[in-house]
């Protein structure tokens, strides 16, 4: 069944889709154009029910956003990867297609500062609202701002 999705993706997006199978156990589908993500998500939705996880890998200056889709029928999963550049850290939100991506996208925003366009409430989720910086980035430094952060300025 997963191959069906891969075929469908290949049919729709032609050159924009490449399938990598050498760098892990599962195949990874790489989407070269981030604008196509929502279309791809709609295709994937036909087979897969949920976003299993969203992981962001900071390979400065590229940020790899890895989506893992899963379903409730069998064990199949689908790895989708989109690369975005540091100077334009934004991507379409797939919350409208996969509601389960809501908090995962917020977490990615929280930790890496990636803007998800069209997300209903893109706020920090794990860290406080006024936390300086995005800590999971490789260039995150413990500055005085972080050291002196008390959380007392936060308005409830």
């Amino acid at each position: 069944m997963p191959s069906k999705v891969v075929d469908a993706l290949k049919d729709s997006f032609k050159d924009n889709v490449t399938v990598l199978s050498d760098n892990g156990v599962e195949d990874v589908i790489v989407l070269s154009d981030k604008k196509l993500l929502k279309e791809a998500a709609k295709l994937i939705k036909k087979i897969h029910d949920i976003v299993f996880l969203i992981t962001v890998v900071d390979r400065n200056p590229t940020f790899e956003i890895g989506y893992v889709f899963s379903n409730y029928v069998d064990k199949s999963i689908l790895n989708l990867r989109v690369n975005i550049m540091q100077d334009d850290l934004s991507i379409d939100s797939i919350t409208s297609v996969f509601p389960s991506a809501d908090w995962e996208e917020r977490e990615a925003y929280d930790m890496f500062g990636i803007k998800f366009n069209g997300h209903p409430s893109l706020k920090r989720i794990l860290l406080p609202e006024d936390w300086p910086g995005h800590p999971l980035r490789k260039d995150f430094k413990v500055t005085d701002d972080v050291r002196n952060w008390t959380g007392l300025d936060l308005k409830f």
Partner: peptide, 21 residues
């Protein structure tokens, strides 16, 4: 070596996974 690894387990709370790069 450089690779992506995803492991899913059924822990007591549900499907927990670790994705290691």
């Amino acid at each position: 070596p450089a690779k992506y690894t995803l492991v899913r387990h059924e822990v007591s709370k549900g499907e927990m996974a670790m994705h290691m790069v």
